[in-house]
Structures are given as C-alpha cells and as structure tokens.
C-alpha cells in the first residue's frame, strides 16, 4: 500500500501560481462526492502560495512556498472531527467526508497550517484531497503537480525507493514546514528559507574599485563561518537561524577592523561596510 506524499523544492518554485489556478479549475463548481463537494468560486486556497520577501534593497531575495494540505500522519483536524468526518485513506490521503463533516466549523481552526477552509454556501469545511478522485481513476499525480512548469512539486509513494519523492529524500535535506506543530506532515520541503546576512565591503581609500577577496567572518552560536567577498565586493552568509545573534567581522590587513552585531529577526542587508586604513 503506497504512502502518498509530496516533496516541494522551494528553490524551483517561481511563484507562477499555476498550481493554485489548476486546483481552482478542478474543484470550483465540480462535485466529486463522496470525495469532495464543489469548491466555492472564490476564497479558498487549497493550494496556497506563501510569498516571503527577504532582505533590503538592493540585496533582496524572494521565496515562494507552496502550501497544500500536509496530509499529516498525526492530523489535528482528524482529532477535532467527531464521527470520522475526517479520515485517512489506506494510501495516506487525509479526506474530509463532505456529508459527515457538514456544519463542523471547528475543524477549520484545528489545522495549524491553515489548510482547511469554510464553505459558507454548503456549510462545510473543505481542503486539498491530493486529487484522490483523479488518482483513483488512474491519474499519476494531482492537478497542481501536473501544472508545475519547473518540477518543484514532486508526488508519489514515500515508501517506494524508486519514486521521485523517495529519491529526493535520500539526495536532499528535506524538512517539514513548521516542525514545531508536530503533526508528521507528508509534505516535505527542500530549500525552505532561513536567514541571510549580506553586505558589501568597500575600502575607503579605494572607493572606485570593488573590494574583491576580502575575508569576512561570521561568529554565531554554531561557531564561525568564513567567506570572501566576490567580484562585486559582496558577501553573504545563508542558512542562518531565525532570531539568532551574530557578529560580522571584517579585518583585512592594513585597515581598522570592523565588527557589527546583527540579530536575524529578519534577513539583514548590512549595506556598505567601509574600511579605513590604519594610520
């Protein structure tokens, strides 16, 4: 029996919203009972895209994080729904029974991922079904996966070592989105954004040239990291922890060293760090 899940590569997601629109096309106005009742024409995001803008001009990054239902193995929605109105199929897909779940508005808030939506016309909670009605007809993957132009969404049997998601499990660092929810999600991510500290080093007596190859040290709780400025005088430390405390040290020979204390509540562009010659 397969254990169906998804691996989402944030590095490949371009924020095109094809997944979101394909989901709307499949479900709006279409009744697939007993799998799912029609999605309303507006207001639901069974596949939601989170956009995260990072940094400050001109050192900016943008991460797009597709968030479908995580089809958790320890699903709080399932626990919150009486009478098995929310159940797990043998293949691992978590389903809301459109008949039994009628009126159960509380399950909407039970989901910490915000993946359940209330349908005010049908008085029904609704969410992503991994297109179970299509999979049962022989489709290989849900609509969102089919629509994705870059292969950022990968779907399959997490227990089959030959499946795409399983192969990514062995080759990449996968993580859960919000592991602190402890729900055992079956949607795993590559490339979830962490924090970066970036900047540009300029030698004040050589303003007209980029300061190439200058060593920059980052000191944090996990120890020290070293990098050197690139051909633009830029440096970057990526993959840092959120709300961490760091010190950035730049000390090329012949110049007064600079040390900056940084907290990573957000991604940080330190801007231009000017170094002055020691007299």
């Amino acid at each position: 029996m397969p254990r169906l899940g998804m691996v989402i590569d944030v590095n490949k997601c371009t924020g095109c919203y094809s997944c979101f629109l394909a989901c709307r096309d499949e479900y709006c106005g279409n009744d697939y009972s007993p799998y799912s009742a029609p999605q309303p024409f507006s207001g639901h995001f069974w596949m939601r895209l989170r956009q995260q803008e990072r940094g400050q001009f001109p050192k900016v990054k943008v991460a797009y994080i597709p968030v479908p239902c995580q089809h958790c193995e320890d699903a709080p929605c399932q626990a919150a729904a009486p009478d098995q109105a929310i159940y797990r199929r043998p293949d691992g897909i978590v389903m809301i029974d459109p008949a039994k779940a009628a009126g159960q508005q509380a399950v909407v808030t039970a989901c910490p991922y915000g993946a359940i939506f209330w349908n005010p016309e049908l008085h029904l909670p609704q969410k992503c079904t991994f297109c179970a009605h299509l999979l049962d007809r022989g489709w290989k993957a849900p609509r969102c996966v089919e629509a994705c132009p870059t292969g950022a969404l990968v779907f399959g049997d997490l227990d089959d070592p030959q499946s795409e998601p399983a192969m990514l499990q062995t080759s990449s660092r996968l993580e859960a989105l919000h592991p602190e929810y402890s729900t055992q999600p079956k949607v795993l991510y590559v490339g979830l954004p962490k924090r970066f500290i970036a900047g540009e080093v300029v030698l004040a007596d050589q303003e007209d040239e980029c300061a190439v190859g200058v060593k920059v040290t980052l000191v944090g709780e996990a120890g020290e990291q070293l990098t050197t400025t690139d051909n633009y005088g830029d440096f970057e430390f990526e993959g840092l922890s959120d709300a961490g405390e760091y010190a950035v040290k730049v000390a090329p020979g012949g110049y007064a060293p600079v040390e900056l204390r940084v907290r990573t509540e957000t991604d940080v562009n330190l801007g231009t760090i000017r170094l002055h010659r020691t007299p």
Binding site: C16, Y17, S18, L21, D25, C28, F41, P149, G151
Partner: peptide
C-alpha cells in the same frame, strides 16, 4: 524536457 506542456498560469483559468 519532460513529456508535458507547461501552460502560462492564466490558461489554467480559461474555463472561468
């Protein structure tokens, strides 16, 4: 390339 056609996003909304 994969054996598929990658539409522009709005084409997924053609029905609407």
């Amino acid at each position: 390339p994969p054996k598929k056609f990658a539409l522009s996003p709005y084409v997924h909304a053609e029905r609407q």
